[in-house]
């Protein structure tokens, strides 16, 4: 087996693994009972799934110009995904989209007032 063949095989494994993660996110999105649980599923294809597929892509293409573009995509994705998740999660909790019967513990509930009051101040 040649070096190129081995590299191709690694790339293929990375990409199939990334695609499987995307599928599991789709399944989780449909199956999980409440919004916050579903959001965990959303984090996966955006982070590890895309990273794996980009790795496969970098191995297959392998020119410096395109790898820098891919690094940039990965950095943007890693920097922005948590912010979006936090905003949606916060909105979900404040909207009361949390199903208490599915929670083992809710340590935010005692402090929740603090945040709703604050949100009024900072909702410019």
């Amino acid at each position: 087996m040649t070096v190129a063949g081995v590299l191709d095989a690694i790339a293929a494994v990375c990409m199939v693994a990334g695609a499987v993660l995307s599928l599991s996110a789709g399944v989780a999105l449909l199956r999980f009972p409440d919004l916050l649980s579903r959001m965990h599923a959303a984090a996966k294809p955006q982070v590890l799934g895309l990273l794996l597929i980009l790795t496969g892509c970098a191995i297959r293409i392998g020119t410096v110009i395109d790898i820098t573009t891919m690094v940039l995509i990965a950095v943007f994705q890693l920097a922005t995904a948590p912010v979006a998740a936090h905003m949606v999660g916060r909105a979900a909790y404040r909207e009361g989209r949390v199903r208490a019967e599915l929670l083992l513990a809710d340590e935010l509930a005692p402090d929740a007032d603090k945040f709703t009051d604050k949100s009024r101040d900072d909702s410019r």
Binding site: M39, H40, V47, P82, G89, D111, F115
Partner: peptide
């Protein structure tokens, strides 16, 4: 820390208190 925790699937920041530096994390 909040970014790293959010990026890891299974944990998600719901609220963050800036004054007491407390993170409220939803864990799956």
């Amino acid at each position: 820390v909040a970014e790293a925790v959010s990026l890891i699937p299974g944990s998600l920041i719901v609220e963050a208190d800036h004054e007491t530096t407390t993170l409220y994390i939803h864990m799956l």
